[in-house]
Amino acid sequence: MFTMQTYNACIAVMKKTPAYLGEFEYAVLLAVLQLREAAYAVPVRELIESRTSRSVARGALYTSLERLEVKGCVKSALRDASPERAGRPRRYFTVTPTGLAALRTTHAALRNLATGLESVLEQQ
């Protein structure tokens, strides 16, 4: 029986690995991964800021998260609506297998590129 599910499965198989991640996307994905269950925009931003010592524009973060979701690198769920947030839920993100694969590819690529440069890169 031909159903929408089989069709989607066919399409999914036909799809190839996701795109090479940009630097900022790479950082966002890493932060989401670090935060595990607690990854919504506020702590993700704080984590990136504190660990990279760079300020992160909220707008850029939201855009990046949305794009990652469109690409299938993260998925999100809405929960924890509290009075403090005027009843608005948090959008929690988790990294998908696709996202993990993309992260690995990018990470490996960068690591490969950096091989042999440790002495230069890790000064100070």
Partner: peptide
Amino acid sequence: PDWRDAILGDLREE
């Protein structure tokens, strides 16, 4: 709407 709620909520929290 989903993004709107999440973003407005986040900003309110902060």
